[in-house]
Structures are given as structure tokens and as C-alpha cells.
Amino acid sequence: MKKSFIFPILFMILITAFFTAILAFLNYSTADVIAFNQETELRKTILYVFNIEIPSNKPEEIEEVFNEYIREEVINGKKVFVAENEDNIIGYAFPISGTGLWGTVEGYAAVSKDYDELLGIDFISHSETPGLGGRISEEWFKEQFRGLKLNDDSGNYIIYKPAPGGNVDAIAGATLTSKSVSKFINENIHEFIKENKGGR
């Protein structure tokens, strides 16, 4: 092949345009599916923190149940999910986040409408050690938070056993993750209650 200056540039432009077009088409045709998947994930989390049962794992049915019970509201500039059962408010769900041992932990928490009971928590992302701190996303750990009373004014809602007044089991072998998780959950809930309880 003879060495020219123009040919490699043209070649590169053409081949880039060709492959980019393929990817653009793929991206365009799957964008809706991907967005829907992400929404389904969020819906599952919200329904879980309110302890509303999901009939099956089908995305359409999850959407149906979600629309029946939950509506979104903006309170004090923050997006909050409100659960209602035939016009009776069940409670409010809001995002929680903080640092774990290795990185950011994100999730949702739900409180009852009188702000005196924790309905549930769920984590949507974390980077804790699998098998140790990673067990925060296991069912037995999350279920412990259901129905905790939130009437401590200083914001110490979650206390690990066997400390006096303890109400939740920490994860054995993951002391640091357990501690940081309880810390940011306490702080986030306390802040949410302070911001909203007076105003409503």
C-alpha cells in the first residue's frame, strides 16, 4: 500500500462514523428498556421499605402495585415517596446515604405518618466486603429495622445489642460497617423528622 497522508485520515473518519452509527442505533433502541429496568429497581425498593408485598417479580405487576399505593411528592425541595392506602397515609420514604467502610452506601428509609415508627430500610448500592459488611443487604439484617420506635429526641434510634436499650443485631466480623451504617441512618432519619414534623 502506498503511503499517503490523506488516506489514513479518511479511513479513520469513515470507520469511526460507521461503528458509532451502529452503537447509536443500539443505544437508541434499548434506551427505553434500560430506563424501565432502573425504574423497576427503584419501585421494588420503595415497596420493600413500606413492607408492601409484591405479587410477583414481573415488572408490569410491580408497576401496577406501585401506582396503586405510592405517589411522589416534593417536600422542602426533596423528593419523597408517600404511601397511601385508600386515602389514609401510611408513611413517607426518603433517600438515605452515608459512608460505609469502603465507600458510599445509598438506600431508602420509610417512616410512619406520625414520624414515630421506622417502617423499613433498604440499600440500593454499597461497596462493602462481600460476605462481611456486604451482608447489610441481606434480608435478616434489613428486617430488624421494621417497627423500631423513633421517640428518642437526640436521634439515637438504632442501638446495637447488647448495649443498654439495644434493638438491632450488628453483623459479626463487620463492626465498622455496622457502626457507620447505624450512624448515617440515625442522622438521616433525625434530620428528616426535624425538617418535616414541625411543618405539617
Binding site: F19, I22, L23, L26, N27, T30, V33, I34, N37, E41
Partner: peptide
């Protein structure tokens, strides 16, 4: 070319195996 195929895999997994 390698990036094109890898992005394809990424999109495929995101859409069908989230």
C-alpha cells in the same frame, strides 16, 4: 473496534440482565 463490541455487551447486559 474493540470498544464498539464491549459497549455492545454493556448495553445488552444493562437492558436484558440488569
Amino acid at each position: 473496534i474493540i470498544s464498539v463490541y464491549v459497549i455492545m455487551i454493556d448495553i445488552f447486559l444493562k437492558a436484558y440482565y440488569p
